[in-house]
């Protein structure tokens, strides 16, 4: 992956910084350029918003056939999480037995290594979730 493409998303991926529409007050993650409710009225009026990183599992799966960068890590849990501020997020759940994960489980964000570009390549970091 080219470095600028990774670097641009660092604030959101490291610190869960989404954004907020100052017109209607809705909060978004990942950050959006335009609020889908206020549209043109929101353009230029979206401000950074730090999410607490806590939420609840709405659905989950256990990945047994991973994409190339995740080979060797399977099986791992991926979940659809509803953050307490409203937005939904797709993330891995770690430090949790696959038999324990369930819909309705409270989780919180943690900073982890996501993947790398091989031994000599960059290492990519970001959020994963653990049991609250």
């Amino acid at each position: 992956m080219a470095v600028p493409r990774y670097w641009r998303e660092i604030p959101a991926r490291y610190n869960l910084i989404g954004n907020k529409c100052t017109v209607c007050g809705n909060i978004y993650f990942p950050p959006r350029a335009i609020c889908p409710i206020c549209r043109r009225k929101s353009f230029g009026k979206m401000v950074d918003y730090k999410l607490k990183g806590t939420g609840v599992v709405e659905s989950y799966t256990i990945i047994h056939v991973p994409p190339p960068h995740f080979e060797g890590e399977e099986p791992y849990i991926m979940a659809l999480i509803k953050l307490d501020e409203g937005p939904y997020i797709t993330a891995q759940i770690v430090d949790c037995d696959e038999k324990d994960v369930h819909i309705g489980m409270r989780v919180k964000a943690t900073f982890r290594r996501i993947m790398d570009d091989g031994e000599k390549g960059a290492i990519y970091y970001g959020y994963k979730f653990i049991k609250e």
């Binding site: 998303e9 659905s59 991973p66 791992y76 996501i114």
Partner: peptide, 24 residues
């Protein structure tokens, strides 16, 4: 790519999320 696949999500994985949700 940036907000699903980057974090290890796969295509079957996305439909699995919908399947689990529907089952629940």
């Amino acid at each position: 790519r940036e907000w699903e696949a980057f974090f290890g999500m796969t295509f079957p994985g996305l439909y699995a999320l919908m399947a689990r949700y529907h089952m629940h």
